[in-house]
Lab assay of single mutants.
Amino acid sequence: MQGVVKVNSALNMRSGPGSNYGVIGTLRNNDKVEIIKEVDGAYEIRFNGKVGYASKSYITIVN
Rank of each mutant, 00 (worst) to 15 (best):
K32E: 10
G49W: 03
G18M: 04
E34N: 06
P17E: 03
G16F: 03
T60I: 15
V5K: 01
I24T: 06
G52V: 03
V23D: 03
M1H: 10
E44T: 02
M1Y: 11
D40V: 07
T26S: 08
S15M: 08
I35K: 00
K56E: 03
K37L: 07
V51R: 09
N20T: 09
G16L: 04
N29P: 09
S19C: 15
V5R: 01
A54F: 03
N29S: 07
Y53Q: 01
R14S: 05
I24F: 02
R28D: 05
T60A: 11
V33T: 00
N48C: 11
K50S: 07
N30T: 04
N48E: 12
Y43W: 08
I36W: 04
S9K: 14
F47R: 03
V4H: 05
G49T: 04
I59D: 00
N30F: 08
V62S: 09
V23G: 03
V51F: 08
G41W: 12
G22R: 14
K32Q: 11
E34L: 12
S57H: 13
I61D: 03
G3N: 01
P17D: 03
G16R: 06
V62D: 09
S55M: 09
I24R: 02
A42M: 15
G25F: 08
Y43H: 00
K37C: 11
K6E: 06
E34M: 11
K6G: 05
S55W: 11
I59Q: 00
V5H: 01
G52Q: 02
E38K: 03
L11N: 02
V39S: 05
G3A: 06
G22L: 13
S9V: 13
K32G: 04
N8T: 13
I61M: 08
S15V: 07
L27P: 01
T60R: 13
N63R: 11
V5C: 05
I36Y: 05
G22I: 14
G3I: 03
D31A: 07
R46G: 04
G16S: 08
L11I: 15
M13T: 02
L27R: 01
Y43M: 02
V7G: 10
P17Y: 05
K6V: 11
Y43D: 00
M1S: 09
Y21D: 14
N63Y: 11
A10H: 15
N30H: 09
S9I: 12
M1I: 13
S55K: 09
V4G: 01
V51I: 13
L11G: 04
Y53I: 02
S57I: 14
G22N: 14
N20L: 08
S19N: 13
Q2C: 15
V23F: 05
I59E: 00
A42V: 14
K56M: 10
K37Y: 05
G22V: 14
G49M: 05
R14H: 14
L11D: 02
V62E: 10
G41H: 08
F47N: 02
V51D: 04
I59F: 06
N30R: 08
L27W: 01
K50I: 14
R14L: 11
D31K: 02
K32P: 07
M13F: 11
M13W: 06
K37E: 05
I45F: 05
D40Y: 11
S55I: 09
V4E: 05
S9A: 11
I24H: 02
V33M: 02
V39K: 06
V51H: 09
I61F: 06
V39F: 09
N63L: 12
R46V: 12
K6M: 09
N20M: 10
I35A: 01
N20G: 12
S15E: 10
K32A: 09
N8G: 12
K56S: 09
I59S: 00
I61S: 04
V33C: 05
V23R: 05
I24D: 01
I35F: 02
A10C: 15
G49E: 06
G3S: 02
L11C: 15
G41L: 07
S55N: 13
L27N: 00
Y58S: 09
Y21K: 05
R46W: 11
T60K: 13
M1P: 07
Y58K: 07
I36M: 09
V4P: 01
R14A: 04
V23Q: 04
G52H: 02
R28T: 08
A10N: 10
G41K: 06
N8E: 13
D40R: 10
Y43P: 00
M1K: 11
Q2E: 11
V23W: 05
L27E: 00
F47I: 07
R14Q: 06
G49C: 07
G52W: 03
V33F: 03
A54H: 01
I35L: 03
K50A: 08
G18Q: 06
I36T: 05
Y53L: 02
A10Q: 13
T26F: 10
N12P: 15
L27F: 02
V39L: 11
R46E: 07
A42I: 11
G22Y: 12
N29T: 07
I35W: 01
K37V: 05
N30I: 02
K50H: 08
S55T: 10
S55A: 12
F47L: 05
V51A: 06
V33R: 00
V5L: 03
P17V: 07
Y53R: 01
S15A: 12
N63H: 13
S55P: 15
F47C: 04
D40N: 13
M13N: 01
V7Y: 07
G18F: 04
V5G: 04
A42H: 15
V4A: 04
D40M: 10
